[in-house]
């Protein structure tokens, strides 16, 4: 049908978020850029809201070859390319400036190319901010506050290990069921970035949000190599350029969304704690970090991340992670 009907190359791009989300808006910018770069010979059709499946399923569709591109959390890529575990580890980045320097530098480039053997290729990182704990009954000001608390985590071994190291009980529950689970006490809390906390309306139930920023797991824009290998060098260049441009747009929109979300939940009466001592949290996960660093690949990447320097302007508040 459509893909072969004319000179226009149609790329199908699926993602799991709704059409108001910075990711979707970033993708619309990408589609527009690609359209103008290619003078209309390349077109991106976006399938939002999990229409074509969960992030894991869409990655598989890329491998099968029936979907061109998708956006996934790098934690989902772990199950395909184990290198990505390093981005799910707690307190690997000193601050936002350091994180962007890493992801847009040599380490980021290496990671984006890492899934090539798995028929996947990263095109760009999208910002997904930093994740922090939100709870129903008491704020998590220090690790001991997590004692005996059931915390919802994503389906990721790293996330479970981290919550366990901090003293909580990790409980994997699907995102869609989380609201009622919080409401009904199936779990005592969860962790996520401010826009997700706000848009999911979890703040209606979980009244404490402490910005300890334990992890900063980015999103990745991925293309299947089945599609990538069919593109001419010129088309690849256009697609890469459009991806980079869309990442810039998405980053700006994300920052705005984060600020809006924090203001909005505070206006709703949520107790947002921004001034948190992260050192005790970072100390609590040291054992876990040592264990993960036994994998030479992870150790090498952690080292490369540590030695990456943020641009001078950045305020580098030292955290316990590099102590």
């Amino acid at each position: 049908g459509c893909a072969e009907e004319s000179d226009v190359r149609v790329i199908r791009l699926g993602h799991a978020l709704d059409t108001e989300h910075p990711v979707h808006l970033g993708m619309e910018a990408m589609a527009a850029t690609l359209d103008s770069l290619s003078s209309g010979t390349m077109r991106i059709d976006i399938y939002p809201s999990q229409q074509l499946g969960s992030e894991r399923v869409m990655l598989e569709l890329l491998q099968i070859g029936s979907l061109g591109m998708t956006k996934v959390s790098s934690s989902v890529l772990e199950n395909f390319a184990p290198e990505f575990r390093v981005l799910s580890l707690p307190f690997v980045f000193r601050d936002d400036a350091h994180r962007f320097a890493v992801l847009e530098g040599a380490v980021g480039d290496e990671l984006l190319e890492a899934p090539e053997p798995y028929r996947l290729r990263g095109l760009a990182f999208y910002d997904a901010g930093s994740r922090s704990f939100y709870t129903v009954d008491t704020p998590v000001l220090e690790p001991s506050d997590l004692m005996g608390q059931k915390i919802r985590v994503q389906e990721s071994a790293t996330a479970m290990d981290m919550v366990r190291s901090l003293g909580g009980s990790p409980t994997p529950i699907s995102w869609g069921e989380l609201y009622t689970s919080l409401q009904q006490g199936v779990v005592d809390g969860a962790e996520n970035n401010p826009p997700s906390f706000y848009l999911s309306r979890h703040y209606e139930v979980a009244r404490y949000y402490v910005l300890n920023e334990h992890t900063a797991v980015p999103d990745v824009l991925v293309v299947g190599t089945t599609l990538w290998d069919r593109l001419s060098p010129q088309e690849r260049g256009w697609l890469q350029e459009a991806s980079d441009a869309s990442a810039e747009v998405q980053k700006r929109l994300w920052r705005e969304a984060t600020e809006e979300a924090l203001e909005a939940v505070e206006a709703e009466g949520v107790e947002v704690v921004t001034d948190v001592d992260k050192a005790p949290f970072a100390a609590a996960v040291q054992g876990m970090m040592t264990q993960y660093a036994q994998d030479p690949q992870i150790a090498r990447l952690l080292d490369a991340i540590r030695t990456t320097q943020a641009p001078a302007a950045a305020d580098s508040t030292r955290t316990a992670a590099d102590a």
């Binding site: 491998q63 199950n79 389906e155 071994a157 479970m160």
Partner: peptide, 10 residues
């Protein structure tokens, strides 16, 4: 799935 080594999360 086997070739590309995909494993389940838990």
């Amino acid at each position: 799935s086997f070739l590309l080594g995909q494993t389940s999360a838990a």
